[in-house]
Amino acid sequence: MSYIIVSSRVRLARNYEDLPFRSKITKEQSEACVQRTLNALRSLPQPYSFLPLRDMEENEKRSLLESHLISPDLMDHEECGAVLIRMDQQISVMMNEEDHLRIQGFGKGDSLAEAAERAFSIDDALQDQLSFAFDPQLGYLTACPTNAGTGLRASMILHLPMLTQYKQMGKINQLAAKLGLTLRGIYGEGSEAQGNLYQLSNQVTLGRTEKEMIDAVTATARQISEMEAIHRAKAADRDLTALEDQLFRSFGLLSNARLMPIKEFMQHWSNLRLGAAMEKLPISTETCDALLTAAQPAHVRKAAGAAVSDRETDAHRSELIRQTIKNGG
């Protein structure tokens, strides 16, 4: 079911024992938080880049946000916020977010355990040298008590076009809630999930081990994927021509359009990826996933290399999509 699970991510919230949390921290203490983190992680084996947010261009920050390497919260606190990113973008360490540290490990497809190992490697390296706020009963202490315990949020991004089309998402949401998990659209606002992309994550952080939480999210994501696969097969059985028509229309549009606004792209991207996963369209799911990030507004602007208008962005996006499809892969 890995072709339905797009990506995996694990986030750990950590705070230094001796520094106040964000609502009470001074600027000097925020600087100390960054300095000691950098010192402790100085000897990491792989190369990292360190980016203080206040020194960065707006578009650069937005592009990190689109890649999930930083959070909206960190962008709102750019005065002291900073991030350390491993060159392969599989690990990011946000500093002076809601908590002193938000360590993130990433993985492609169904790889939550590997993503967790990446995050734990940073946690271990830091804990060898520094003390985190910890309580034997409440676990790792966080600024918002709803994150206390493991401080872990394990999430998987799922592509669920057929469960959405057949109006099954309400049912799936209830199933997730019963298991202490939440499911929400990752792009778009409110109930709208642009690109039919959903994020499944654990809500409980206290009383269950990291492994139990990771296993619960993984098992549920796989179960939801199976339901999506069944609906895909059903749709093909019911009316294959209609399904292929839906996929190839989007393929045709993405292959030929000269101006592609983001919202329209997201809608057709969903059909492109569905067609890739069902082996109906000459493109791979990996290429689709890379295109999803590359076609987001800040990424397109960054690649264009200059300050461009919205219309020019749409033109550059359509160019990028056409090239990607032409190269296949």
Binding site: G139, Y140, V204, L206, R208, T209, E210
Partner: peptide, 18 residues
């Protein structure tokens, strides 16, 4: 009690500082 209600548990399990 607040955490017990929100999280369904009140005792940490999992990783600990070395």
């Amino acid at each position: 009690p607040l955490l017990a209600r929100a999280q369904g548990h009140s005792q940490h399990a999992g990783r600990r500082p070395p």
